[in-house]
């Protein structure tokens, strides 16, 4: 596993990258909240929100193709939402015969579905831009500054630090299992054993990983105590709001408000 496996930061020298992480977090959250407030079928507003998104990704020098690929993550959920096309009362648009059943997509249902899709797709892309332009430790600082409870932020910070180490350990356990499980005589099963046996092996790996993690947390705690930790975790947040941060943040907020205005004209 490569050390970058869990990093989503795209290193560039852009104004967006240099923006204070607090501004980026606040504008991103506002953008997503505002999206949720856009009514179904507010096409002009959707277009304006997309224009804002394009502007940000352009300024951040993040390629559209890359952004599009990452945004596919909303895909599976569209499956859950697609049912509204057929269940929302409205004028039937067509009749599809599917075995013994008749499916009738309605205009209201289609409108709802497309709107959900657009809102979600816009939101997830802005969130992707946030992580692509902000190193995760800076994101953690931003949460500190924004008064997210200290304990929670610190836990997330430790989790981030040990994500790769523990995932790597899990990877080693998986590889060890693979190297010991030969294909069956008939060549069909490379996993071997009954379902329970397989589950047991996997469960033992999880248990193993859990015990190792426990022991590691002890050692890390000792290392913290050795350097003066006494229960109050102190951090230095090397961020100061510059006037350009205020200005760009302000522009973002105004743009988001304008989009709402467009939707309600």
């Amino acid at each position: 596993m490569h050390v970058n496996t869990f990093d989503r930061y795209e290193s560039r020298q852009s104004a967006i990258h240099q923006l204070d992480p607090r501004v980026k977090v606040v504008v991103t959250v506002l953008f997503i909240v505002a999206n949720a407030l856009l009514p179904d079928g507010a096409w002009l507003a959707f277009l304006a929100a997309w224009a804002l998104l394009l502007f940000v990704s352009g300024a951040a020098q993040i390629g559209l193709g890359w952004l599009l690929k990452r945004s596919l993550i909303v895909g599976p959920f569209l499956l859950a939402a697609v049912t509204v096309v057929f269940t929302l009362p409205g004028n039937g648009l067509a009749q599809w015969q599917l075995g013994p059943w008749t499916l009738v997509p309605t205009d209201a249902g289609l409108l709802r579905f497309v709107s959900i899709f657009i809102r979600s797709w816009l939101s997830v892309q802005m969130a992707i831009l946030l992580t692509a332009t902000t190193q995760f430790p800076d994101l953690i600082h931003a949460l500190h500054h924004l008064r997210v409870p200290n304990v929670l932020v610190s836990i997330i910070s430790f989790m981030y630090r040990y994500l790769f180490e523990l995932a790597n350990e899990a990877g080693r356990l998986l590889r060890a299992r693979e190297s010991r499980s030969a294909a069956g005589v008939n060549g069909r099963s490379s996993s071997g054993g009954s379902l329970f046996w397989r589950a047991k092996i996997a469960g033992h790996m999880v248990g193993q990983l859990l015990l190792r993690s426990f022991e590691r947390s002890d050692r890390v705690y000792n290392a913290m105590v050795a350097r003066g930790y006494n229960g109050r975790l102190l951090t230095m947040n090397p961020h100061h709001m510059k006037s350009s941060d205020w200005q760009l943040g302000g522009v973002g907020v105004v743009a988001i408000l304008l989009i709402q205005l467009v939707a309600r004209l």
Binding site: I155, A170, R198, I201, M205, L210, S213, S217, Y221
Partner: peptide, 21 residues
């Protein structure tokens, strides 16, 4: 002990989710 313990256990759950059968 809370912060290192909870942080590393959270990382464990994340890593444990990678183990499949």
């Amino acid at each position: 002990r809370l912060i290192p313990l909870a942080g590393i256990m959270a990382a464990f759950i994340f890593a444990g989710q990678m183990i499949n059968f």
